[in-house]
Design a protein around this nucleic acid. Structure first.
Length: 643
RNA sequence: GCCGAAGUAGCUCAGUUGGCCAGAGCUACUGAUUUGUAAUCAGUGGGUCGGGGGUUCGAAUCCCUCCUUCGGCUCCA
């Protein structure tokens, strides 16, 4: 007999070799139908795998994260089975579960895969699922595994097997299909009741651009049709929040082929929103001791040779512009730091001057690959809320902590609660990608990890994600459809001070080298606004709204009074739009609601007589009448309470 | 850059297997209406069907090519 400890601490005894499915059945038949996998001592196992010792035991349903993963992983196998039956000879790469569904990278042998085939594939999958074939796990020797896939002529699987050790190789088979797989899997295909093939994309084998490109087929499956319907509905909802759609609707920004791809044009309302964000951060930075600087959009090639960026990115950036007479080369600036280093060097610095915090909303230009451009999140020209902090080594951690405070202040003001903090460190396997001494890297990495811990941030550590000149702490936020974007970033840099030979005179009257912190709480205004738009679905908080108030007169008889109200608001520097069209009030309200204007003031005969406004709040309807001055006072109080 | 998909009026979209002068709604403009909490009515504009080339008696529709956009991959100072 073995002892099984359930999550609630209860213990049950079973015969050695009992399976999780049998345990589930012993608890209740309904439970046995709903489970997809089990967690045995914290590891996810097949339900049908025999348990041979005392273990901590937890059953996983589809609702559990690991349950979903298992379900979708098994679905990838089901799709592979369907593909193999539809397209004999197809070869398989990898087919993992992802956040919402799964994909499988396949080599269709030059065949194209169209939309109609997506439907055919779905049908085939459902047909195979209905057979309720079991997923059968077998341990195989490396030699047998190689033999099987050599016969199948699947070089991708053979390459995967090559990286595995004999004795740790398992196959899973369901129906006619056998795959190399670590598992685990759901007990049988019958659990998969709803199937959707979502999209097709090219993906390089093992993520290597120089290797074969495979067809990546994305899909999602559910144990119930209703869950799939709900999932598709949520995807539709998310699409409505897409910043590209809302940006167009609300006239925030636009692109023009004549200007160039990836080069956003900020329309008046978008520019107003930007200005408000900039003002907001400038105020916070002034309080935190930052000093403003302004630098030009181009810089001499020499500058980037010194910084090392020329060597690293010279060929992959916009190519230099030349002066017509001297033939001197200038690059569009891809970052602001070299300019700021030159500002540091304009006079001798004392240890008493540090930290020196130079801030600039600097617009930079980077040549991004054509296929990578994406709305405002990935552009070729963007404005960083950049600053460079030059400090003594003993000040590094304190400064770093202060920057974290600033980033958190910004995120809080904008209600970004759902972010992840990522510590990006060097890839210990491949140190040649980076510049700078081991000693400096170790110090910088230590400073970041300690600061993040001190500030109580929950961090994810990513090896190999550091910038080439130093480690960083990035703040990641998800967009409407779950893609992760980096917003705020804080980076430690020992390298540029070295390259630019930055110095300060210490108390000992000796020259010392400062440490640099690059930081941008928004990251780039473009990307930040994109995520902000999706976050609030275009309903900006009152203090950011490009048009916080609209005045809607009932008819043109009340335009004089409306203009009076408008003048009062304008005198308080509040953005206000007067809708003086000869439209009915219902139409004006509808249009204003759709523009997401936070407050609508309806003025007619009653209001003009009593010098009041009827307030209507976006999304909340009529709020009743209010004295004009009272409304303005309330409004200002509300705005001030937000920042 | 690579794989796949798409591109019709300012916007959202219709346009059967190639066949009258390419359509609708909204927007814009003109006029009427003077309106009380999510769409007043009428009229008028507006398109080399992304560009170029080809097949055809005839192309928005079929083929080639380029551009842009979208979904991914790669990359991201």
């Amino acid at each position: 007999m073995i002892k099984i400890t359930l999550p609630d601490g209860a213990q049950r005894e079973y015969n050695e070799g009992v399976t999780s499915l049998e345990i589930a059945q012993s608890i209740s038949a309904g439970l046995a139908k709903a489970v997809v996998a089990a967690e045995i001592d914290g590891q996810v196992w097949d339900l049908t795998r025999p348990i041979t010792k005392d273990v901590a035991f937890k059953l996983l349903k589809f609702e559990d994260d690991n349950g979903k993963k298992t379900f979708w992983h098994s679905s990838a196998h089901l799709m592979a089975e369907a593909l193999e039956s539809l397209y004999p000879g197809v070869k398989f790469g990898i087919g993992p579960p992802i956040e919402a569904g799964y994909y499988y990278d396949v080599d269709l042998g030059g065949r194209k895969f169209s939309d109609e085939e997506m439907v055919t594939l779905e049908k085939k999958m459902l047909e195979l699922a209905a057979k309720d074939n079991q997923y059968i796990r077998t341990e195989v020797s490396k030699a047998d595994a190689v033999k099987y896939f050599t016969e199948k002529n699947d070089e991708y699987k053979l390459e995967l097997i090559d990286g595995l050790n004999d004795g740790e190789i398992t196959f899973y088979q369901q129906g006619e299909f056998t795959d190399l797989c670590r598992g685990p899997h759901i007990p049988s295909t019958g659990l998969i009741k709803a199937v959707k093939i979502l999209s097709i994309a090219g993906a390089y084998w093992r993520g290597d651009e120089s290797r074969q490109q495979l067809t990546r087929i994305y899909g999602v499956t559910f144990p119930k049709q209703a869950l799939l319907d709900e999932h598709m509905r949520l995807l539709e909802e998310a699409k409505k929040r897409d910043h590209r759609k809302i940006g167009k609707e609300l006239e925030l920004f636009a692109f023009s082929e004549n200007v160039g791809m990836g080069l956003p044009l900020w329309l008046p309302k978008g520019a107003m929103l930007r200005d408000k964000l900039v003002d907001f951060l400038k105020r916070a930075q002034t309080k935190a001791g930052y000093l403003p600087v302004v630098t030009p959009h181009i810089g001499n090639k020499k500058l980037y040779v010194t910084s090392g960026h020329y060597e690293k990115y010279g060929k992959d950036s916009f190519q230099p512009i030349e002066t017509p007479q001297e033939g001197e080369q200038f690059f569009l600036k891809p970052m602001n730091c070299p300019h700021h280093c030159e500002i540091y060097k304009t006079k001798p610095r004392s240890y008493k001057d540090l930290p020196l915090r130079l801030a600039e909303f600097g617009t930079v230009y980077r040549y991004e690959q054509h296929g990578e451009l994406h709305g405002l999140t990935r552009v070729r020209g963007f404005t960083q809320d950049d600053a460079h902090l030059f400090c003594r080594p003993d000040q590094l951690k304190e400064e770093f902590c202060k920057v974290i405070d600033l980033v958190l202040y910004v995120f809080r003001a904008l209600d970004f609660q759902d972010f992840t903090a990522q510590v990006s460190l060097r890839d210990p396997e491949n140190k040649t990608k980076y510049i700078g001494s081991d000693e400096n890297w170790d110090r910088a990495e230590k400073a970041i990890i300690e600061s993040a811990a001190e500030k109580g941030l929950t961090t994810v550590v990513e090896l190999g994600e550091a910038a080439f000149y130093g480690p960083k702490l990035d703040f990641m936020v998800k967009d409407a459809i779950g893609r992760k974007w980096q917003l705020g970033t804080i980076q430690v840099d020992y390298n540029l001070p070295e390259r630019f030979e930055l110095e300060y005179t210490g108390a000992d009257n000796q020259k010392h080298r400062p440490v640099m912190i690059h930081r941008a709480p928004f990251g780039s205004l473009e990307r930040f606004i994109a995520v902000l738009i999706e976050h609030c679905a275009g309903k900006f908080p009152l203090w950011l709204s490009p048009e916080p108030v609209a005045i809607l007169p009932i008819s043109d008889k009340f335009h004089a009074f409306a203009e009076e109200v408008q003048a009062k608001l304008m005198a308080k520097n509040i953005g206000v739009f007067l809708d003086d069209r000869a439209e009915k009030i219902g139409k004006k309200i509808r249009d204003t609601e759709l523009r997401r204007t936070p407050y609508m003031l309806i003025v007619g005969e009653k209001e003009a007589e009593t010098k009041t406004v009827s307030v209507r709040k976006q999304g909340h309807g009529d709020q009743g009448a209010l004295d004009v001055d009272q409304f303005i006072t309330n409004l200002i109080t509300e705005i001030e309470s937000m920042i």
